[in-house]
Design a protein around this nucleic acid. Structure first.
Length: 486
RNA sequence: GGCGAGGUAGCCAAACCUGGUUAAGGCAGGGGGCCGCAAGCCCUCAAUUGCUGGUUCAAAUCCAGCCCUCGCCUCCA
C-alpha cells in the first residue's frame, strides 16, 4: 500500500510505527458554527481511509479535535448570547450529528482544547526552557528561527516568506512569523498559567493532544490542504522542538478543499451550504458518492448539478443490490443443481473485482477508481442475473450470496449503504395473494391483453406495489414509504 | 510578489509519480436488444488528453517554452 506524503511530495510505502496498528489524528474544526461541505468532505475522506485500513487488517486508532476556545468563539458567543463554552458545545454536538447523518464513524476520541490545558502549558514551558519560545507581555511565542527546519512541510524558506508577507507585524514578536503558543487574555474564559491568565494559541493544541493521545507515534496526520501553512508547519516545529524527535508524523495527508467558484451567487447571499442544509435534500449515500468519485487530494469545485447526478449513479448500484436481495429472499425452496459453465466465468470476475478494488485503494486511497470497480462489479452481476441461460439453482444461489457480500463489503468501505429497507410484508398470505394477481396479469399479457395487464400494474402501483418485468419473469415489491435508500 | 494545484468526450472524473492495447467509471446523448408499454438491465457509438516544440521504437504520461483556470500565503477542513 502506498500513500502520498505531503512532507516528501511522494507516494511512499505505508509502514506504520507498530505492525498492524495505525494511529491517526485528523484536524477537526473550530466549533463556532454549523459545519459545511468543506469540513465534512475531509471527514468523509478520512472515514473511508480508516475503514479501508481496517479492511486491510490494521487496528486503527483515530483521534479528532475540537478547537473550543479562541477569539472567534468568544465573538460568536456574544452574537448568540451564549457563554463561549455553551456555544462550543452546541456546535460540537451539531457537528457530531452531521457526521452521524453522513454515516461517518465516530472517532475513537474527540479531544478538546479546554480539557488539555495542563498538557499544553507543560509543553510550552518545555519549549521556553529549551529556548524555542519566549514570553512577551503575558503571551508566549514560538521562535521560528530557533527551529532549523521551519518550512519543511510547506516548502518555504523563512527569508522568502518575509518579503511578501501580509502578516501584520506584532511589535512584541521577534520575528514576523513567530506564532503564539499562549495568548494573554484577561476576561472570563481563561486559564491560569506561569505567564498569567490566557488561553492556548491555535497550533499548540494539536501538537499537545496528538502526542498525548497517540503516544507520540503518529502514523497519519490529516487535514485540509489549507492547513499546511501555517497550521501544520507550526505543529511540526513545536512538536519536534519539544520531543527532539523527527519526524513528528510519519505520513502527512491533505485533502483538497471544496470551492464554490461556480456558485458565486450563494456566496454573496450568505455563503456556503451547511451540512444540514444539504442533508435536507440529499442522502448520506449521495453526498458520500459525490465526494468519493473524486480523489481526496483534488480540490472540488462544488456543483449542485453534479451532486444531483450522483443520485442517479447511485441508484444503479442500489438497483443491483435490490435485485440480488430479491433473488436471494424469494424462491427459498429451490434446491436443484444447475449448470456450471457460466458460473466459472462469473467467479473469476468477482475475484478480479475484489483485487482491482484493493489495487485502487492501495494506491493512495483512490476512491474514484474504487467506485469504478464497484460499478463494474454491479454491471457484471446484472449481466449474470439477466442473461438468458441464467437459472437459479443451488450453486447459483451460493454464488449470488457471495456476489452480494462482495458488493456490500466494497460499498461499506465507502460508507455507502446498499441495504434497501423495504417493509417486510413480502411473504405470507398477503404475498400469496399478490403472486396470484401477478400471475393473472401474466396470463393477460400472454393473450396480448395489454390493456388489462397494464391496468393491473397501475392499480397495484397505486396500492404501493410495484411490478417489474424482468427476463426472469415479473417481480414485485412493496414500495418503501418515501425516498430512495438513504 | 512567494508557494502550490490543475487544464482529459457536452458535463463530472480516473489513469500521469512507476512512458507501451482500457484513455476507467458516472451523468447527459445516438443506435440496437431482453420486451408490447412502464420500470430496469445488457450490448454498442462517442476523446487527434490546453497550445508548440523536444526526448523516445513508443508520450495524456518525461523535458522546455507559451496560453489559461484555481487555491494558499489572513486562528479557514
Amino acid at each position: 500500500m502506498k500513500v502520498y506524503n505531503s512532507l516528501t511530495g511522494k507516494k511512499e510505502k505505508f509502514v506504520p510505527h507498530v505492525k498492524d496498528e495505525v494511529r491517526m489524528y485528523v484536524c477537526g474544526l473550530t466549533v463556532q458554527n454549523y459545519s459545511h461541505l468543506g469540513h465534512v468532505r475531509g471527514a468523509i475522506n478520512y472515514d473511508v481511509i480508516r475503514r479501508y485500513l481496517r479492511y486491510k487488517g490494521y487496528q486503527v486508532k483515530y483521534i479528532q479535535n475540537f478547537t473550543d476556545i479562541n477569539e472567534k468563539i468568544v465573538a460568536r458567543a456574544e452574537e448568540e448570547g451564549l457563554k463561549p463554552m455553551e456555544l462550543a458545545n452546541k456546535y460540537a454536538e451539531a457537528y457530531i450529528d452531521d457526521l452521524k447523518n453522513l454515516n461517518v464513524e465516530m472517532p475513537d476520541y474527540f479531544c478538546r482544547v479546554s480539557d488539555n490545558i495542563p498538557e499544553i502549558i507543560e509543553m510550552i514551558e518545555t519549549l521556553v526552557e529549551r529556548g524555542h519560545a519566549y514570553e512577551a507581555e503575558g503571551s508566549v511565542y514560538f521562535s521560528v528561527e530557533s527551529f532549523e527546519d521551519y518550512g519543511m512541510l510547506s516548502g518555504r524558506k523563512l527569508e522568502e516568506m518575509e518579503a511578501g508577507s501580509r502578516v501584520e507585524v506584532d511589535a512584541s514578536k521577534r520575528h514576523p512569523l513567530d506564532f503564539a503558543l499562549w495568548k494573554s487574555y484577561e476576561e472570563k474564559p481563561n486559564w491560569e498559567s506561569p505567564w498569567g491568565p490566557g488561553w492556548p494559541g491555535w497550533h499548540i493544541e494539536c501538537s499537545a493532544m496528538s502526542l498525548k493521545y497517540l503516544d507520540g507515534k503518529l502514523d497519519i496526520h490529516g487535514g485540509g490542504t489549507d492547513l499546511i501553512f501555517p497550521h501544520h508547519e507550526n505543529e511540526i516545529a513545536q512538536s519536534e522542538a519539544y520531543t527532539g524527535e523527527s519526524p513528528f508524523v510519519k505520513y502527512w495527508l491533505h485533502n483538497g478543499t471544496v470551492d464554490m467558484s461556480g456558485e458565486k451567487m450563494s456566496k454573496s447571499t450568505g455563503n456556503f451550504y451547511t451540512t444540514r442544509e444539504l442533508l435536507e435534500e440529499f442522502s448520506a449515500n449521495e453526498i458520500r458518492y459525490y465526494i468519493l468519485t473524486k480523489h481526496y487530494r483534488s480540490p472540488i469545485d462544488f456543483s449542485f448539478e453534479e451532486l444531483k447526478n450522483s443520485r442517479k449513479s447511485l441508484k444503479k448500484l442500489l438497483n443491483t443490490a435490490e435485485e440480488l436481495d430479491n433473488l436471494l429472499d424469494k424462491n427459498e425452496e429451490i434446491d436443484q443443481d444447475d449448470r456450471l459453465f457460466l458460473q466459472e466465468e462469473f467467479v473469476d470476475k468477482l475475484k478480479a473485482h475484489r483485487q482491482e478494488f484493493g489495487e485502487a485503494m492501495d494506491d493512495d486511497f483512490n476512491t474514484a477508481r474504487g467506485m469504478a470497480v464497484i460499478h463494474n462489479l454491479a454491471s457484471d452481476i446484472n449481466s449474470f442475473i439477466n442473461s438468458e441461460d441464467f437459472e437459479l439453482g443451488r450453486n447459483t444461489r451460493q454464488l449470488l450470496r457471495e456476489a452480494r457480500k462482495l458488493l456490500g463489503k466494497l460499498a461499506e468501505i465507502m460508507g455507502l449503504k446498499l441495504e434497501v429497507a423495504g417493509p417486510e410484508l413480502e411473504s405470507g398470505k398477503f404475498a400469496e395473494l399478490v403472486d396470484y394477481v401477478v400471475k393473472l396479469r401474466e396470463e393477460a399479457r400472454e393473450e396480448k391483453n395489454f390493456e388489462l395487464a397494464d391496468r393491473i400494474r397501475d392499480d397495484l402501483q397505486k396500492m404501493g406495489i410495484e411490478i417489474k418485468d424482468t427476463p426472469r419473469g415479473p417481480e414485485w415489491k412493496l414500495r418503501s414509504s418515501d425516498n430512495d435508500g438513504s
